[in-house]
Design a protein around this nucleic acid. Structure first.
Lengths: 343, 343
DNA sequence: GACCCTTCTGTAATCGATTACATGTCCTCC
DNA sequence: GGAGGACATGTAATCGATTACAGAAGGGTC
């Protein structure tokens, strides 16, 4: 019953050639004459031969595998990026190995363990909480294993990085609300450890300053990026006297939580308070009220990162250090924002 | 610069033993005397040695890798299951290889290509649209590669399968609405090709019949599982004269779409129409109105499937065919359902 | 005809681990 | 003292592909 799989040598025997020739037909067909090539291909078909990846990997010292480090796979935002990644990689005949970095940042040990274990040809990192030194150690030990960041990134890291125009998005949101007459702005920021939180918060403060608006530190609330974060922020925020008339949230999920909490507390969005999100996840359109937010091209982020990594693998020259690819974003104005409330 | 990685033979030289002994220390420490074991471990530490997986895989004919076939990675419902999977697998020192089966069911060729390519030790399938014959072919060619279905499944397939109690969930929903006084029920079903659609639809009809309720085929609308599906169903449904007072949707996303569409059309949920979902995704709690739905333990589904697969890999005896593990679900009653409308 | 080039194919070493088998040592027991 | 067993370790074959190198065959030029 346990019929062993056909091997290269079986194909060679049937085709009446050497293993070297079979291998050449598979890897570089042009160097083999047409007649032998056809004979070999026929033998391949007849035997149903498939290359043993382990053997090839051992010999060529590659794995045709890319490892993705994700802080939390179950986050729908990441899954969209993975989808883009997977599509691009599988088109290039690469496999996608997935690893959830779980709670807390990963250590050098873990990263290198993963690389060595999966023998990955490259790393896609969606987790900006990794220490710079760990990354540099990894690069030192595996100089031929390029690392590309998507969405998040790490300051000072020399390597490619693909991200959305976070600051631009926030700026557009502030402007949108400003034009609607809002002057008192609040911000639900992401966790302080997160680079996107910083980026968005800074952009928020900067744009507000440019417009000569008031930046009130007590109107900047730090939460995690989840719905629950938004809900608990609402508890704090709902009782503010003369509080913000507009809240800019660092993610759609935060915005959902906030709106939900405010609504329960009897406040009307957008009539009394305007709220914006960031990401434009699918839900934003059907939420009640439909959410004004910033659209990120998540699939494209994944695509681009994959391309970027594959390019680096292809060209052995690693001269290209530190390109930052920033993808544009755009405002999707829906009904969670409106003119400032006239009592 | 390109310092080659330390190999087994390097460790052996430094520890003053043979490669066989080093290998034994790494794989079955108990057979080696304590003194040599310590010497070897020290040498391992000193060199920073890590086993070359490709070599090991080649020699042992295993890969310590599980391949997950997912219909659509970007679906947040799946990503939660993946998360459970990943956690369990990585705890057992297995890798998770991800493959998006994309549009349309996969062919034998593709499946086997993936198995052979990734040289997976096992398969987790979340896609019920694969043909039975393709699965059986795969089992014939790779008898040592167990296949476990999660969430979805394929009729007639001999093998383990982990799923939620879909019928039970629907039954509870019908009863819940029945008790609220509803007698005219509609159902937004998933795509006809999907096994869950069937299961849930049949349970819907069965329970309604048991209660001596009326099953109206024209009140059963087929959509895909997406938000967009619910929105377009709303277009059809909103103009029904004396239509259902309660809609049971085959997924939360459908319910969101439906509620959103109905609300836009001026109908009030739950005052005039009650709507239920299925899944209890995070969003259900903060949706407006909060969604009455069935909670599925998605993480647990992933966990269980992984355990199930690992168990099969561990025991070489493949006597165990066809266990179905059904996980319980429960009703989460929120505000999208209410007593039947009295005009 | 001699020489060289091009084109195609075969031989055999190699990647880095695992493991069957052989060997050696030491201990126990009759 | 010798047989037998338990335990620890080493030797070398092996997994299945890739590829450097060598060799053969054919063709063109002087």
């Amino acid at each position: 019953m346990k019929q062993t799989l056909p091997k290269l040598v079986d194909v060679a025997r049937i085709a009446g050639v050497s293993t070297a020739t079979v291998s050449r037909v598979l890897n570089d067909p042009s160097v083999v004459s047409e007649s032998t090539r056809n004979a070999v291909l026929e033998a391949v078909k007849k035997t149903g031969y498939r290359v043993n990846r382990a053997a090839r990997n051992l010999r060529t010292n590659t794995s045709k595998t890319i490892l993705a480090l994700v802080p939390n796979i179950s986050n729908p935002f990441f899954s969209n990026i993975l989808s883009g990644l997977e599509r691009e990689l599988s088109a290039a005949d690469y496999n996608l190995l997935l690893s959830d970095s779980g709670d807390g940042p990963m250590t050098t040990e873990q990263i290198q363990g993963f690389v060595a274990a999966g023998h990955a040809d490259g790393l896609i990192v969606l987790d900006g909480s990794i220490a710079l030194s760990d990354l540099e150690d990894t690069q030192a030990v595996f100089p031929n294993c390029p690392i590309v960041f998507v969405c998040e990134w790490v300051h000072g890291f020399k390597g490619h990085s693909v991200r959305s125009d976070n600051a631009g998005g926030i700026r557009v949101l502030v402007d949108h609300l400003w034009e609607l007459g809002h002057r008192r702005f609040g911000h639900l920021a992401g966790p302080s450890s997160n680079i996107l939180s910083h980026e968005r918060r800074e952009a928020f403060e900067a744009r507000l300053s440019e417009l000569k608006g008031e930046v009130r530190p007590d109107w900047i609330v730090q939460c995690d990026f989840s719905i629950a974060g938004g809900l608990s922020a609402a508890e704090v925020v709902k009782d503010l006297k003369d509080g913000p008339t507009a809240w800019i949230c660092a993610s759609d999920q935060l915005a959902f939580g906030l709106i939900s909490g405010l609504t329960r507390a009897g406040q009307r969005v957008p009539l009394e308070i305007s709220v914006t999100g960031f990401d434009n996840i699918e839900m934003a359109e059907v939420f009640n009220p439909p959410l004004t937010t910033i659209h990120q091209h998540r699939n494209k982020l994944g695509h681009k990162a994959a391309r970027c990594l594959l390019d680096q693998i292809a060209q052995t020259s690693d001269t290209s250090d530190g390109d930052v690819h920033t993808l544009p974003v755009f405002l999707v104005a829906r009904e969670s924002t409106g003119p400032v409330f006239q009592a």
